[in-house]
């Protein structure tokens, strides 16, 4: 490995991120960095198609039960949804800045930005919790569990099935994202990243932006248009 490190212009490397070394099957750090990012992009593709099934269901049932969807979406709280949108966009912003500061070797700033991102994510979940408990209390539940009485149209249960599946799976992604952010935050504290090696920060960032991106579609479709 030492020869390889030498070839990579080793002095800076050891100074900037002592734990980092190029895995034996990569010819150079660049390749490893690119490979990781390509892997993440491919993974994001799978995420898009995973949510895609639900978007497809939404499109079909919306056109099939349009009055139900319109009626049901009025039972979603667009203020809470709007707050969550802003929270999530902010977290995306701080995440992007965290990647930037990691690129610039600003360790403390990175930590701070990651912590803010984490806080935003937590806040998102708290708001989500209030929304969910409100729905559960009102009996606005998927399909066969739907018990809310004062509905004029036919199939609001389908709307709430899609609502809970979409936001639920999205919520799971937020939780996973929080775990990942915490993980890179701790690694950052251990000085593992530098301007020469910040791939994990960037890759977690990509994932987090996708979580935001999905929400960017979920919010108008579910809360605003119905």
């Amino acid at each position: 490995m030492s020869a390889k490190a030498e070839a990579l212009g080793g002095a800076e490397e050891t100074k900037l991120s002592p734990q980092f070394h190029v895995a034996h099957h990569f010819d150079k750090a660049d390749t490893q960095f690119d490979a990781g990012r390509m892997g993440v992009w491919l993974f994001l593709v799978t995420e898009i198609l995973l949510f895609g099934g639900l978007f497809c269901a939404f499109a079909i049932f919306r056109s099939k039960y349009f009055p139900s969807f319109v009626e049901a979406h009025h039972h979603l709280d667009r203020v809470m949804g709007g707050i969550n949108t802003i929270v999530l966009i902010s977290s995306s912003f701080t995440m992007a800045l965290a990647v930037r500061s990691a690129q610039k070797n600003e360790k403390k700033k990175t930590t701070l930005l990651l912590a803010i991102t984490l806080a935003c994510a937590a806040m998102f979940l708290v708001v989500k919790y209030f929304e969910y408990s409100h729905k559960i209390h009102d009996g606005l539940l998927p399909g066969g569990n739907f018990t809310a009485a004062d509905f004029a149209s036919g199939h609001p249960g389908i709307f709430f099935a899609i609502y809970f599946m979409m936001t639920g799976i999205h919520g799971v992604h937020v939780v996973i994202g929080m775990g990942l952010i915490l993980w890179i935050l701790l690694r950052n504290q251990k000085n593992e990243f530098s301007s020469r090696y910040y791939a994990p920060v960037e890759n977690v960032g990509l994932y987090w932006h996708l979580v935001d991106l999905v929400w960017i579609y979920l919010f108008p479709l579910l809360y605003l248009v119905g």
């Binding site: 995973l50 389908i158 599946m165």
Partner: peptide
């Protein structure tokens, strides 16, 4: 991934009757 979401919906359909595939629920 589409298989993933399909099976997930099937599992939820079976466990919680969410109704996306169930004709009695629309």
């Amino acid at each position: 991934p589409v298989l993933g979401i399909t099976l997930l919906l099937l599992i939820f359909e079976r466990a919680f009757h969410i109704g996306i595939f169930d004709p009695t629920l629309g």
